[in-house]
């Protein structure tokens, strides 16, 4: 912090002021707008919009999709991180690149890819139909899209931590006869605890807010395949602004909670180091 003293205080406070103006304009103001707009017609209207049966159904589906995505990506994240950081094998770089594909492509294209895979023009469509499985324009499509867009979120947090930790401790434990799960639980997990929780938080945030990919696959059936963000879109396009912002306020509260947990985890993680 001794840079502080030497630097020009005018430059310092100008830059700080500039940062605050930028952040307030672009980040704080939109948040405040959602809250003020949702309460514009009083608390009763707000309560009615939030407890509307379509809103409740959309919330349930959003939670289902989010929980599925977190569960799926947790299992994948732990095994993929273990595989990539504890073993040497051919094609590791290619595998790592493939894991990152979902976050690099547009959500709309993600939706398109799943339409082509499971939709009517797909090779496997007749098989799906004979099994009675409906994926596109149904709940499984929404869940798949959510899993896809958050796919690398947990593995990406675990891999760098495990990489710096190395393999010596696990090797020693294995040589002393410890079983795989014991090694993971007793030696590896304490190292990745904070990164793991952080990954879950990020995954949750993105999963509950996904819009583009889910929008392609959901078919927008109100009360059936509508998630909260899609419900917001429908209300807004119907010029029902107050209800649209009221439903948004649920998502804003979730986002603020996520950010708070994130900050706490980061602080705890740094202290643990």
């Amino acid at each position: 912090m001794d840079n502080d003293k030497k630097g020009n205080p005018i430059v310092k406070w100008l830059l700080i002021a500039l940062s605050f103006i930028f952040v307030v304009l672009f980040l704080v103001l939109p948040l405040v707008t959602v809250i003020t707009q949702s309460l514009r017609s009083g608390f009763e209207t707000y309560k009615k919009a939030v407890t509307d049966s379509y809103t409740v159904k959309a919330t349930v589906l959003t939670i289902e999709a989010t929980v599925s995505a977190v569960a799926f990506n947790t299992i994948f994240g732990i095994f993929a991180a273990w595989l990539i950081t504890k073993f040497k094998f051919k094609g590791k770089k290619f595998l790592t690149a493939l894991i990152d594909v979902p976050v690099t492509i547009s959500p709309v294209i993600a939706g398109l890819i799943f339409l082509l895979t499971f939709g009517r023009q797909s090779v496997i469509y007749p098989y799906l139909q004979s099994m009675g499985l409906k994926i596109v324009f149904a709940v499984p499509g929404v869940v798949l899209a959510t899993i896809f867009v958050t796919f690398p979120f947990i593995s990406r947090e675990l891999i760098p931590v495990l990489e710096t930790q190395g393999t010596d401790e696990e090797e020693a434990a294995a040589l002393m006869g410890a079983k795989g799960f014991t090694i993971f639980r007793r030696i590896t997990f304490p190292h990745i605890k904070w990164a793991f929780l952080y990954g879950i938080v990020l995954c949750t945030a993105r999963a509950m807010g996904e819009f583009g990919a889910v929008s392609v696959l959901s078919g927008h059936l109100r009360g059936k395949t509508n998630t909260l963000p899609l419900h917001v879109e429908i209300l807004f396009n119907e010029f029902q602004y107050v209800p649209a912002f009221a439903v948004s306020s649920i998502l804003v509260m979730m986002a603020v909670i996520v950010l708070a947990i994130r900050s706490i985890l980061e602080y705890r993680g740094k202290k643990a180091e």
Binding site: S19, F20, V23, L27, V28, L29, P30, L31, T33, V34, Q37, L202, A205, R206, M208, G209, E210, F211, G212, L228, P229, L230, V232, E233, F236, Y241, A244, F245, S248, L251, V252, A255, V256, V258, L259, A260, R262, S263
Partner: peptide, 24 residues
């Protein structure tokens, strides 16, 4: 708080950001 709020665009659903910015 400044440091924490930087990540808001990752946490806030894009549709919500969209309608908030539009109404502003």
């Amino acid at each position: 708080i400044l440091n924490g709020i930087i990540e808001l665009p990752f946490a806030l659903p894009t549709a919500v950001a969209g309608i908030a910015l539009t109404s502003l």
